[in-house]
Design a protein around this nucleic acid. Structure first.
Lengths: 212, 212
DNA sequence: CAACAGTGTTTCCTATAGGCAACAAAATCG
DNA sequence: CGATTTTGTTGCCTATAGGAAACACTGTTG
């Protein structure tokens, strides 16, 4: 009295109600999230019940996710990440069984990074072809012109190195006086300490940023 | 508590979407995926309809996601990531309220680094006041003019990011063809793979290097 | 300024995600 | 060994995600 797994059904004979409007997603990889989650859970020697308690997700739901019976909601994914201490890069990237990656290389031409805008910054992410990397480099135009544009401190894990490519700016940090940086200056700081940049030159300042 | 996503600073939003059952974890981070998606879409100057076609997600669904009315399914998130070229897995990661201390900061003025000359490179080490750091940043003039100046491959642990500050040069790597880099270009590679730089411009090229 | 073409939002409805509870299969205990 | 606990896997049901279409707005154009 059991029906086939739903998503299989879906693949097979779900043509009548065609809603596939473009072929963009044709090449979408399976990306076995379920197996990944299971591997991570087992690696921590947790039972479904324990994982359930840590994440706040029902035991049954976890089972279904691990067996690829359902596609979890983003809120659930967040709970998993949070509760199991999963590093999201792994979740999104492919197996890559090997230990330390060997001979990878990724070239990013000027202006060819992936844009990532925010109200105060215009980031351009570099080396986005590589997934499992220790550092995240990006080039940024600092649009902010006043410290007041930041509703609160920017603050996150890790350490950050910044290098001023052009223009001048003020580096505000939580525990220090603001300091003016000019072209060629650089700074290294803990990201857990609140920080923010404000352009002071005629043109918006450009910085190179690397986070780890 | 720092639960701001990496590049995100944003106005406060209300709806934390409460799950009434698992009261174990009362509050769940907002993590405004919606605003992020909207920002990315707008940065690419796409309408909802265009984004819909690229991602294969219904226009209405996109609208709801951007307005935080629903929590998208993982398959939908995948489609978004794929169709809009979103990278940055760490974008989604919630910096765990880790006990990483640290309010360190180190400013290095232009030219004020610690010189470290070699036959082929003139390194200037940056942020040398800080000792226990994850990354080692330095600015380098590439004196080498011929690959033959390197008796053997440079090779060491970790990963390296390099950004061309001025001039042009050739990046030789063990497993790839040499590639020419110009001002503003960047590269990321595994250091265990042999690598070497050679200036090709009239003046010696200058690069910014970060190792981790 | 009416007819129109595009935008983003909202409504309606179906498909499905997720929790609870019943279940089967091991594992543990008596 | 049977009884009990603990494991992971289903039914079942409700809450909700997601698609199509209607809608409300805003420009355009003749």
């Amino acid at each position: 009295m059991n029906e086939e797994p739903r998503f299989l059904r879906d693949e097979k004979l779900k043509t009548p109600r065609i809603t596939r409007r473009s072929a963009t997603e044709a090449t979408l990889q399976p990306l076995q999230l379920g197996k990944r989650v299971r591997a991570i859970r087992l690696s921590q020697k947790l039972t479904l019940e324990e994982a359930s308690q840590r994440t706040g997700v029902a035991r049954s739901t976890l089972s279904k996710i691990e067996n690829e019976l359902i596609s979890p909601t983003f809120t659930i994914v967040q709970k998993l990440v949070h509760g199991l201490g999963i590093d999201i890069p792994q979740l999104f990237s492919q197996p890559r069984a090997g230990a330390t990656p060997g001979g990878r290389r990724d070239i990013t031409r000027r202006g060819a990074g992936k844009p990532h805008p925010t109200p105060t910054y215009a980031h351009e992410l570099l080396a986005t072809e590589l997934t499992q990397k220790k550092m995240v480099p990006f080039r940024t135009e600092v649009h902010a012109r006043d410290f007041a544009e930041y509703p609160e401190w920017i603050r996150h894990e890790g350490e950050e190195f910044l290098f001023v490519l052009s223009g001048t700016l003020l580096l505000y940090t939580e525990f220090y006086e603001p300091v003016e940086l000019q072209e060629g200056d650089s700074a290294y700081y803990d990201c857990t300490m609140g920080h923010a940049l404000v352009s002071t030159s005629a043109r918006d300042a450009e910085v190179l940023w690397v986070t780890a």
